[in-house]
Design a protein around this nucleic acid. Structure first.
Lengths: 131, 131
DNA sequence: CATTAACATCGAAGATTGTCAATTTGAGTC
DNA sequence: GACTCAAATTGACAATCTTCGATGTTAATG
């Protein structure tokens, strides 16, 4: 996920040289601008790891809807720094939030984030009706 | 996204040595097994790139719900092999399908895939009711 | 105030990814 | 069959990611 720039659409059509079109040259606008696409990709990137998905599901299904790092760490074979690393990625993507109480940090899901992500999916994958 | 193995949950509780619990030691089962988590991560990984998101939205919003590689390529600054590479990743994730007609290949969205992905999100992020 | 426990951060190793240039494949055309 | 064009594949390289070991930070405790 890096630099990504749409070619400036000159003269409103595609720039094929020949006169034989492969299809109706429908250069539609993408649903997302470059910046929005990058931001959406970041969210999906946070979800693009089995450990992080498992962490999320463990938090979602835990008793009070929250879990401390020590319990999460105890659930995996990998070390505590790795879990902390994944938690940071999830937090940066605004999928979870941490609450420090005493010596422990309790992580919980950000409410409503699932619906926001579904909205992102609709933006990208939904075929617009009656345009 | 690689090896990820849950620690075998021995004796039904967490393995903290001290008697002072950081929280109710609720070692719940994750919603996904290791294999399912890896598969789900692959899907989100396919979505975790701004170019690929833009490609998807271009296809979704194109006139007939399909777009040929040449038009997609014309929409980006990057080269044709890169677009082909991204299309392959989207195809491997079963997000799009290719249809070769004459010299051209037309890509379209796999119908219903959006709902399946939303189902994945629910599996991971939805807090179970009345357990 | 020294110690311990929980968690975060840092630095490095190894794997994976995105891009390009070059080449190959495959269909249509002369 | 030689040629052309669309698309896929290959190989290389830089950038990024995941993991680990070591260290730092902060809060409770003796």
């Amino acid at each position: 996920m890096e630099i990504q720039e749409l070619k400036e659409q000159k003269e409103g059509a595609n720039s094929r040289g020949n006169d034989e079109a492969c299809c109706v040259p429908t250069l539609v606008e993408p649903a997302l601008g470059a910046k929005q696409a990058r931001k959406a990709a970041d969210v999906f990137n946070a979800l693009a790891d089995p450990t992080r998905l498992t962490i999320l599901s463990l938090i979602a299904r835990s008793e009070r809807g929250e879990a401390c790092v020590c319990d999460l760490t105890a659930s995996f074979k990998m070390g505590q720094p790795s879990i902390s690393h994944h938690l940071k990625i999830l937090k940066d993507a605004d999928l979870i939030q941490g609450d420090k109480r005493g010596k422990w940090v309790y992580y919980s899901l950000v409410v409503g984030r699932d619906e926001e992500i579904k909205g992102l999916l609709d933006t990208v994958l939904k075929i617009p009706v009656g345009v």
